[in-house]
Design a protein around this nucleic acid. Structure first.
Length: 921
RNA sequence: AGGAAUGUAGCUCAGUUGGUUAGAGCAUCGUCUCGACAAGGCGAGGGUCGUCGGUUCGAAUCCGACCAUUCCUACCA
């Protein structure tokens, strides 16, 4: 028999599905669509992607099997900054700089790179089993989407929602581009606070002390501000400062912004290099002195000695010079939040430059409404707080980037700095009747990548054309994403879709957690704790893993530590667990919590589960022969075991449906896991063995059992398919056609629907009795170290009439599961031998002690059992002794408790009796 | 500073609207080649549900305070 080997069964099916066009929307059901959060075209699949796409694929496959016309729209984005950086780095290895190459050639290089590497992520998604519709794959830079971007830009400009202006923006001096607020990360870092003495003009020897974390910015100071109420400084307001080094004179002004209790109560004002100072400057009409070049060096506004110096070298020099002038009061250690570019890690500077902005207020207003009124639901509900918080305090969005890779802004400038926005130079010339001697230059900036991503749900469906796809699949059904992306992307999609289509982009936003390592640490290259989903699917040696984690480190010093940790955590590397177990693990983690820790041990557990399912499949298939299908399929179901497992299956289907409706993927897979392993494998399969093997069971019984076996496993496979597509397809394909749903592939078979007529409570009760009885005997075996194959005599005592009936009915099954030497029924009044006792219901199961059972161990066992039961009894007694409980609690509860008390009382008396009997020996 | 979330077994997490003895996986211990499965079977141990108070007949669950951790937003130069 073939062993479960994920690799052997996973590779072939994806191709088969694709060949048969199963990824394309089909059928007449209500549309269900999801737009993939576009991965970076030059990127690779990371754990977050794998997690996210596993969830989406489960949703998509579930709805597809439910008969919906299902589209999972594939596409990638151009990731302006990340991709431009990457290609620049490649060029650097050839000792070529982008400027040497020129804009056009550089862009060509990026396209070349995209052609080469763009397939990596697609292939990884295929490996993951993602049932994406590849035929309509889109890319943010392709012609159609670029056209959509232009249309949106032009319309927003014409409607007055896009404007251009000189503003202070976040500037990355390495990339020499602006960044939006959301692309800047501020973290606390150690630094210094320099307290500078600024000499007051005309007052020899008097100073104002200002503090700063960036001394070099003093070269751009145009004022010193104090609080107007500050009595210490009132007298200086209106006077001037001789700004050291520069020899400029700057005013002392009064502004409420200054906190008199912080530091000296004096603040240097540098309007061109600080966001707060910018506002102060505006209020007071201060001059803006920009002292920086785009690359972070000082410009000609700085004294000659400083011109051309890098900002941090300038800082050192300023401090030295001030120090030699005795103008430094003190230097303190200081921790402050340092803003860094998300991609480059470079310290971002507030920088004065011409930029394009989307004014956000109007767009935000509508976007807030649709979430408030429930047109869009966030799941889990509280994630909408992130959305509201950002939306209600929205700032205008800086959309221009000084990059080459991206959508070039469709605007032209003439000599007089007039701006013309349009589809092309020709169109503009015609529209504005510009003479041929007017020179037009195209704006050099490109748009923020998120500008094109904001159109994603509709641009990928063909907008601005009124396509059939757009009509059918928009608004999309769900957006699945991480909470870190709500402001950056989700909110902007909502704004754009509302403005341009007057409908929401999606009806639901499911926000999943962030994948961390097994210790709850964020996975990162620099910590060396990251995992590549491909390595979990295909396996990797320890050596390979160490190499992966330690190569291209920003801090090579970490290398040894990373290696040690890796050896400790994965001494054997990672074995090839396969896609299905990885996917099942991700589902089990999707509980709605904010962060989810990923442990390879979990994958191992679910790999074992897949193995279990595999073996169960083997067992069932081995019992079914094609040629006898007729009597099997015609069989009527009479046996309790068969009715019971059907009931359990129905309950499981209901649980899965409920979980899927509420986006609790963890509960969905848990329901399946428990049903398959704990009921189907542990009990049902074992119970079919005596029926199928025994000569005493009739052909009818055998046939109905075979029928049930195959029915249940076939349903299980369809039930589990959205979560583990490959193993389910593999086993399902081996089931002879006549036993299964009419479909060529399980992927497009119908999803199981729960059928309440298949629920049989009496059968379930009876099987429950059987399980309890078996468990009780197994407990004695286990505790008494009696080998499971050794035959033991069993006496059943104090049983009810129902117990006796059950015993009769299930004797063959009991015999198979508990391997008794004999089973004897005794009436309560009969004398019982000394025996080990177990309780099932109120019935006593006795295993006579002779030669089998040790007195001491049985006493321990009885005591343990007694303690448990007594504790329980006390708790119930306490309740029932409370008159308030009897009075106020619902009758049903009180009766239930009372019944429990009676039963326990009986059980305890029996146990005590047994104990005293043994003590007497 | 403001906002939000989390705290349940050694670890990672479930626990629907308050109502049996608070569950699972992994880890631990004992035991078993029993014809699907040692990637397994069978059995066992392990928890004052962060702390304190309140509401209630009854609280892991509802309310308040506190402690701890995490995230987001804004940062005082």
């Amino acid at each position: 028999m073939q062993k479960y080997t994920p690799k052997d069964i996973e590779e072939k099916w994806y191709k088969a599905w694709g060949k048969n066009n199963l990824f394309a929307p089909s059928g007449q059901g209500a549309p269900f669509s999801i737009a993939i959060p576009p991965p970076n075209v030059t990127g690779t699949l990371h754990m977050g992607h794998a997690f996210q796409h596993s969830i989406v694929d489960a949703l998509i496959r579930y709805q597809r099997m439910k008969g919906r016309k299902t589209l999972w729209q594939m596409g990638t984005d151009h990731a302006g900054i990340a991709t431009q950086m990457l290609v620049t780095e490649q060029l650097a290895k050839e000792n070529v700089s982008p400027s040497q190459l020129g804009r056009e050639q550089f862009i060509q290089r990026v396209w070349d790179w995209k052609e080469r590497s763009g397939k990596t992520i697609s292939n990884q998604l295929r490996k993951l089993g993602a049932s994406l519709h590849w035929d309509t794959e889109r890319f943010t830079m392709d012609a159609g989407l670029s056209n959509a971007v232009n249309e949106v830009f032009i319309k927003l400009y014409e409607d007055g929602l896009i404007y251009r202006g000189k503003r202070l923006v976040n500037w990355d001096p390495l990339l020499k581009t602006s960044l939006s607020d959301l692309e800047v990360e501020s973290k606390e870092e150690k630094g210094s606070l320099w307290h500078l003495r600024y000499p007051i003009a005309d007052l020899e020897g008097e100073f104002l002390v200002v503090a700063t974390t960036r001394p070099e910015t003093m070269l751009g100071d145009t004022a010193v501000a104090v609080n107007p109420e500050d009595t210490r400084y009132k007298k200086y307001i209106g006077k001037t400062i001789n700004l050291p080094i520069t020899q400029r004179k700057i005013q002392i002004i009064a502004d409420q912004y200054v906190d008199p209790d912080f530091g000296s109560g004096c603040v240097k004002i540098t309007p061109a290099h600080d966001f707060n100072d910018y506002d102060v400057g505006k209020r007071h009409g201060l001059e803006l002195i920009n002292i920086l070049n785009a690359n972070g060096t000082l410009n000609d506004q700085a004294p000659k000695a400083y011109e051309g110096l890098d900002r941090f070298d300038a800082r050192k020099k300023i401090v030295e010079e001030l120090s030699s002038l005795d103008l430094i009061e003190k230097i303190e250690d200081h921790i402050s939040a340092i803003p860094r570019g998300e991609r480059t890690g470079e310290i971002v500077e507030p920088f004065l430059s011409d930029q394009w902005f989307v004014s956000a207020d109007l767009l935000a207003e509508n976007a807030i409404k649709v979430v408030e009124n429930g047109e869009i639901d966030f799941l889990p509900k509280n994630t909408e707080n992130i959305y509201f918080a950002w939306m209600r305090n929205i700032q205008d969005w800086c959309i221009s980037r000084q990059l080459w890779w991206g959508h070039q802004i469709p605007a032209w400038h003439d000599q007089e700095k007039n701006i013309f926005v349009g589809r092309s130079e020709e169109e503009i010339r015609a529209k504005y009747s510009l003479a041929t001697n007017v020179n037009l230059d195209r704006d050099k900036d490109v748009l923020d990548t998120w500008f094109s991503s904001a159109l994603w749900t509709f641009s990928t469906l063909g907008w601005p054309e009124k396509t059939k796809e757009l009509k059918t699949f928009h608004p999309t059904s769900v957006m699945v994403t991480g909470h870190d992306i709500i402001s950056l992307w989700v909110s902007r999609m909502i704004m754009m879709s509302l403005y341009f289509l007057e409908e929401v982009p999606f009806k639901k936003v499911y926000v999943h957690g962030l994948i961390t390592d097994a210790n709850g640490q964020k996975m990162s290259k620099s910590k060396g704790n990251g995992l590549d989903p491909t390595d979990i699917i295909e396996g990797i040696s320890l050596k390979g893993l160490v190499k992966k984690r330690t190569s291209n480190l920003m801090q090579p010093k970490m290398s040894q530590k990373i290696e040690r940790n890796t050896i400790k955590e994965y001494p054997e590397g990672i074995s090839a667990y396969g896609t299905d177990p990885l996917r099942f693990t991700f589902q089990s983690l999707a509980s709605g919590s904010k962060s989810v820790s990923f442990d390879v041990k979990k994958v191992e557990g679910y790999r074992n589960f897949c193995n279990k399912l595999w073996n169960a499949g083997q067992y069932v298939l081995s019992k079914i022969e094609k040629k006898e299908s007729k009597p099997i399929l015609d069989a009527k179901i009479n046996l309790d075991v068969n009715k019971w497992i059907q009931s359990e299956l129905q309950a499981c289907i209901r649980a899965v449906d409920f979980a899927m409706e509420t986006f609790r993927f963890d509960l969905a897979v848990k329901a399946i896991y428990e049903f398959v392993w704990n009921e189907f494998c542990d009990w049902y399969l074992e119970l079919t063995k005596p029926v199928l093997q025994s000569d005493e069971s009739s052909d009818d019984e055998k046939n109905e059992t075979k029928k049930t076996l195959i029915t249940i496993i076939e349903s299980i496979l369809r039930l589990i398919h959205p979560f583990t597509p490959f193993i389910s397809e593999e086993i399902w394909q081996k089931i002879p056609r006549e036993y299964k749903e009419a479909a060529d592939y399980i992927m497009v078979a119908n999803y199981p629907i729960s059928d309440s007529t298949l629920t049989d409570e009496q059968a379930s009760k009876n099987i429950c009795w059987l399980k309890e009885t078996v468990t009780a005997i197994r407990n004695i075996r286990g505790e008494m170290d009696i080998s499971p194959v050794r035959k033991i005599p069993i006496i059943i005592s104090r049983g009810t009439e129902q117990d006796r009936l059950n015993l009769e009915k299930f004797e063959p099954l009991l015999k198979a599961l508990i391997v008794p030497e004999s089973i004897t029924w005794k009436e309560p009044e009969d004398h019982n031998p000394l025996a080990a006792t177990a309780i099932a219901g109120t019935m006593e199961l006795l295993v006579p002690m002779e030669n089998l059972i040790d007195k001491e161990s049985e006493l321990t066992r009885l005591s343990k059992e007694l303690t448990k039961k007594n504790k329980e009894f006390e708790a119930i007694k306490k309740k029932l002794d409370n008159p308030n409980f009897i009075d106020k609690a619902p009758k049903a509860i009180v009766e239930k408790e009372d019944l429990k008390r009676q039963r326990l009382d009986e059980v305890i008396k029996n146990l005590e009796h047994k104990k005293s009997q043994i003590l007497e020996i």
